[in-house]
């Protein structure tokens, strides 16, 4: 950090497009802040090994102190967030009542058309409990989306285990919907990219209200990220090799259209339920302008997180680079 006196000089110089000071003056201005010249360091190191060693030890000591303090701080923060989370969970419990959920989101001006969530498979891939837990979380989120009126939900899970159980997932979500809506279950479609989707039998509209409620669930995995772009590249390459396409035809619009068609469009809101803000291989093309919501030190899927995400989304404004 430069001294403020020198900052002033620098700014005055900058305001005249750096014509005020000469080259030499400017170099003198910054010289005190530069580290020792790296070329001379080997000699000084050799002459003062003890000093260097002591300095290192001191730095290590400070490092340990910082991390000690930080780990205390982060424990307190985590505890605070867990308590806060619990309190919210008690305050805003949905009681599986669509009316209550509607009440919770009443004041919001804007809803995502396409919501995306990242779920994590706990435990082993072969573990039945992990799979069931995943389905249950998915079913809960699906039910909330239907209550709020979000028509499109995409669920990313790295391993893609749910893709092997599409009918089971459909059944799990349907039965959850039953417990929320009773007999008046909205139509539901569960699918995955390049896998035929599974639509429920009673999709025929019965009443005006029920027909307007429809939820499409798209199951995503790591394969739909980079691999899809690689597959597209392979196809384009083959076409180019057969002279069906010139490389200059490969445009951003073409890639966008193909990726949107084969996987999905850009989601409006992405909710992370995990601890860190990591995308875990989420499709890279589609998260361009997606609002990413996460709760610090979050511990799992919860209705209060979902609700806070929607509230946050409603307040945010889109700028599109302007």
């Amino acid at each position: 950090m430069a001294k403020s006196k020198e900052t002033d000089v620098y700014r005055k110089d900058a305001s005249t497009k750096h014509n005020l000071l000469t080259l030499k003056q400017r170099e003198d201005l910054i010289k005190p802040y530069l580290p020792k010249a790296p070329k001379s360091s080997p000699t000084s190191k050799r002459s003062r090994p003890i000093r260097e060693f002591l300095r290192n030890q001191f730095h290590l000591f400070v490092f340990i102190i910082i991390h000690l303090l930080f780990s205390i701080y982060i424990r307190i923060r985590q505890t605070y967030h867990i308590l806060f989370d619990r309190a919210l969970a008690v305050l805003y419990y949905h009681h599986r009542a669509p009316e209550l959920i509607k009440q919770d989101v009443k004041g919001l001006t804007r809803f995502p058309e396409h919501l995306s969530v990242i779920l994590e498979l706990r435990g082993d891939e072969r573990d039945q409990a992990g799979l069931e837990g995943l389905m249950d979380e998915l079913a809960e989120i699906a039910a909330w989306c239907t209550c709020v009126g979000i028509p499109m939900l995409s669920v990313y899970e790295r391993t893609g285990i749910l893709k092997h159980y599409i009918p089971n997932t459909h059944r799990a979500v349907s039965s959850k919907m039953h417990s929320y809506f009773g007999g008046d279950v909205p139509s539901l479609q569960v699918g995955a990219p390049n896998i035929s989707s599974y639509l429920n039998g009673n999709a025929a509209p019965r009443t005006g209200d029920a027909s307007s409620r429809h939820l499409s669930i798209l199951l995503l995995s790591a394969e739909d990220g980079r691999s899809t772009l690689v597959d597209l590249t392979k196809t384009l390459t083959e076409m180019s090799q057969r002279k069906k396409l010139a490389p200059s035809d490969v445009s951003q619009d073409l890639v966008d259209a193909e990726i949107t068609e084969s996987v999905m469009g850009e989601p409006d809101l992405l909710i992370l339920f995990g601890q860190d803000v990591k995308l875990q291989g989420y499709p890279p093309w589609q998260i361009r302008l997606t609002e990413i919501y996460h709760v610090q030190d979050s511990n799992g899927v919860g209705y209060q997180v979902f609700l806070r995400a929607l509230h946050n989304y409603s307040k945010a404004q889109m700028k599109f680079g302007r």
């Binding site: 772009l229 597209l232 590249t233 384009l236 390459t237 180019s240 490389p247 200059s248 490969v250 445009s251 951003q252 890639v255 890279p284 093309w285």
Partner: peptide
């Protein structure tokens, strides 16, 4: 990404 795909194709 588009230019990476294009370069690969080329």
């Amino acid at each position: 990404m588009t230019s990476a795909i294009r370069d690969t194709v080329v």
